[in-house]
Nucleic acid binder design. Structure first.
Length: 432
RNA sequence: GGAGAGGUGGCUGAGUGGUCGAAAGCGCCGGUUUGCUAAAUCGGUGUACGGGUAACUCCGUACCGCAGGUUCGAAUCCUGUCCUCUCCGCCA
């Protein structure tokens, strides 16, 4: 949510930003309603002030008759105040409805336009591999090597669910360990979060938990939902709190399961593990001072690059165009890994994203900081970034590390946790 | 899941219908005093929104988990709800 005063004072910039992002929001209507609301607020406060005066004077009334007269006066004023309050609240409700639709402002360097206008910033250290044999995709590899069971997953929970088996399980845990180690070295506090969260937390972080197009699974007869990312519980962790400026920045890496309905998504681009209803993710999150967030954003992106360079997976870094940013993001960098089995002859596919949400989430979650010796409080900035989304990382590993004989080499940095250098068919393993 | 207790300012904790934004203590900030430290002493110290000012300042309104209700008036009474704690049960 943007600050209302900011919207009023920078209406033209806000409107232009909505156009850049392809978002419909009636900013002019908001300005009109806000003017009316302020007038009503004055009225409410004035009536209340007079009613308070009358109430205080009742104890000092000379006699019963005067006391009754003042009571009647007080009653009249309170009723008038209630009416004004109701009108004010209705205006407020309408304003918030519009305000909630207005996305965050955008970084001046973020490319303006739609998805196709996003800019490639750089490539990773590992070149795109050339294969001299027919390339398999991760679904074929996963089935041949008994690593993923989609059919079994569908029997148990429907399309979009899967069983990981054998070395895929070891790889999942290895990726978590590997990412965690790197982030610990970078000063992050590791956290395992709740996989469920209250709706108000989801809202604060910027998710819409119920409704026809929701990405979110909700628990019946409760206001809990399954989290779509650890960003939700990590952001919600400090909801309503006032942090000490000296404690910032706070860097967290959270491990959670992620649950997504993926309503309306289907087709070859979402084959196999690419778009699933449940996966595990190691997520970076930070609360920072306003002047720290841009540097933290670069830091997150560097760490993501470091992880994928260490895994020796080819990738490119994308500066996401304004039209493709989520509502809370001020700027977003995506890492897209090369996936040789994707499309015809391979395609890049998103594996991580790092967003600077500035104070947009903090305002909704009401997370502020206070500096010793300074009056008042200000909103913190929040950032989130994927360290490793396991399911998509597995796609990139399987497909880039596949060999002519159908086996998959285990990335060197993961070998200590997987306990082997190569994943072979069960038959080949038994023969060795 | 059952029974009970409770949610008050940065913290501890008083306050059962009016002068309570709220005692006291701690913490924090500033002054004084004392070789330093420690101690003593005095004063100050919440947030949000709105308003007047050139500005430190000042004024108004709201906030005692949250949402309703009663009342001229609610931290205080009533209802609902969420959360926490203790005990019991169940359980990885």
């Amino acid at each position: 949510m943007l600050d209302r005063k900011f919207i009023v004072e920078h209406a033209d910039a806000v409107k232009q930003n909505c156009r850049n992002r392809g978002v419909e929001a009636d900013v002019d209507r908001l300005l009109e309603l806000e003017t009316q609301r302020r007038e009503k607020l004055h009225e409410v406060q004035e009536l209340n002030r007079r009613a308070n005066e009358v109430s205080k004077s009742i104890g000092k009334a000379k006699d019963a008759r005067e006391r009754e007269e003042r009571k009647a006066e007080g009653r009249r004023l309170r009723e008038a105040k209630e009416a004004a309050q109701a009108a004010h609240d209705e205006l407020e409700r309408q304003i918030v409805a519009i305000q909630a639709c207005i996305p965050n402002m955008s970084h001046p360097d973020a490319p303006i336009g739609e998805e196709a206008d996003s800019r490639e910033l750089r490539r990773g250290a590992t070149p795109v591999p050339q294969f001299d044999f027919p390339v398999l995709d991760h679904v074929e590899l996963g089935e041949a090597l008994d690593l993923i069971d989609f059919e079994g997953g569908a029997r148990v929970a429907g399309h979009g669910f899967y069983f990981l088996r054998n070395e895929a399980v070891l790889l999942e845990l290895a990726l978590q360990q590997f990412a965690l180690r790197q982030l610990l070295d970078a000063g992050f506090t590791p956290v395992i979060t709740p996989d469920l969260a209250y709706q108000e937390i989801l809202h604060g972080v910027g998710y819409i938990p119920r409704g026809p197009e929701t990405q979110i699974y909700s628990i019946e007869n409760s206001n809990l939902s399954l989290v779509a990312t650890a960003e939700i519980p990590l952001g919600g962790w400090q909801a309503g709190q006032v942090l000490d400026a000296e404690d910032l920045p706070i860097k967290l890496c959270g491990i959670s399961h992620c649950f997504r309905t993926e309503a309306g998504a289907a087709g070859r681009a979402s084959r196999g593990l690419y778009r699933v209803h449940q996966f595990t993710k190691v997520e970076m999150f930070a609360f920072t001072l306003p002047d720290q967030s841009e540097a933290m954003h670069e830091h997150f992106c560097q760490l993501e690059c470091q992880l994928f360079d260490a895994l020796k997976i080819p990738y490119r870094v994308i500066d996401t165009a304004t039209g493709d940013l989520g509502g809370p993001a001020y700027r977003k960098y995506d890492l897209e890994a090369w996936m040789p089995g994707r499309g015809d002859g391979g395609e890049f596919g998103e594996v991580t994203s790092a967003s600077n949400c500035t104070d947009y989430q903090a305002r909704r979650l009401n997370i502020r900081y206070k500096r010793a010796g300074e009056r008042g409080t200000r909103f913190v900035h929040t950032l989130n970034g994927t360290a490793v989304a396991i399911s998509r990382a597995l796609i990139a590993i399987f497909e880039n590390y596949q060999q002519a004989d159908g086996s998959i080499v285990v990335p060197e940095v993961l070998q200590p946790w997987v306990g082997k250098q190569r994943i072979e068919t069960r038959a080949a393993t038994a023969a060795n």
